[in-house]
Nucleic acid binder design. Structure first.
Lengths: 160, 160
DNA sequence: CCTTGATAGTCAATTTTGGTGACCATTTGC
DNA sequence: GCAAATGGTCACCAAAATTGACTATCAAGG
């Protein structure tokens, strides 16, 4: 990251700024809607929850966090009543992290807030431009880093 | 953040992913070039350094970190020989954080690495598309959050 | 089968970070 | 020249990430 004011802020600085701003607004709005007991860091788990459950290790991969961190996050969310751990029928080692009723409500609320944030940006940029921006953002997020020699195809590798 | 795999990953998830990937690649490359003693978190300061110096409080604003954090970051970077504190001639309370020779080298190296990362994305997306993407990214990063009533103009308000 | 190696998850200990409140020096506005 | 705001630091505390080890299970191969 190298955003000298002389230079334009670089990709990393911009990403960090957007992340901070989105996080702040999302969790402020969630708190106003009654979800005031979840720490922003729990977003790493909540953002990747699925109604039908997801494995902790997959959460770790998707969020880029270590599995110990995900474990403690899930602990917290479980105590708060947002998720519960259920055994994974397909693998007796694994446990599925499933949202509870309250978890589903939170997911819906967060999705609505994120929609409104993105709609605001879409209005500012123009619908078409924002759609193009979002698509480009996805591409950039999915482009594999560096690949010194034998690049693997950019296929569905990234689970999330 | 609400990126159910069913849904597309949202703005926050994408920003987080890009930030992580950029950080990892940048600091790996810096380490390979001999700058292996700087922690990624110091990027919050390094990214906003200026050759002619910048105040700690401005670093705090630009990076979104508390001034105590910036202080300790600057301490570390000072011990490592990347920056030095000089009194600000314009305000005897303030100190300017100025890059040393080594700091300037680091800034140049980081800028080059970031350029190569962005060039890779530009190749993947197309030069035109990437330029449009980058412009949109800046707009999104600068759009003020929410503004329930009397919006202030989106002028140069954001210091960084 | 029975071994070998990888994967899923947890526990515990350590280290890093981040956050808080108080505090001094200086500047700014009245 | 006094009060309030700003720049910066100190000392302490809480939260968080990283590491390493360990159990249970799965998947391959012999």
């Amino acid at each position: 990251m190298t955003g000298h004011p002389a230079t334009q802020p670089d990709l990393g600085v911009l990403a960090a700024r957007i992340l901070m701003s989105v996080q702040r607004e999302l969790f402020t709005a969630l708190a106003e809607q009654g979800f005031d007991d979840i720490a922003p860091r729990a977003g790493a788990v909540l953002a990747h929850l699925r109604a039908d459950g997801i494995r902790a290790s997959e959460l770790a991969r998707a969020s880029g966090q270590h599995k110990q961190v995900v474990g403690s996050l899930v602990d917290d969310l479980e105590h708060l009543g947002y998720v519960e751990r259920r055994p994974d029928p397909a693998d007796r080692r694994a446990k599925l992290v499933c949202p509870t009723e309250r978890g589903l409500l939170q997911m819906a609320a967060a999705a609505a807030i994120m929609r409104s944030i993105e709609e605001r940006h879409a209005r500012a940029l123009g619908e078409r431009e924002y759609a193009a921006f979002k698509a480009a953002l996805r591409s950039v997020a999915e482009l594999p880093p560096e690949s010194p020699h034998g690049t693997r195809p950019p296929g569905p590798g990234d689970g999330a």
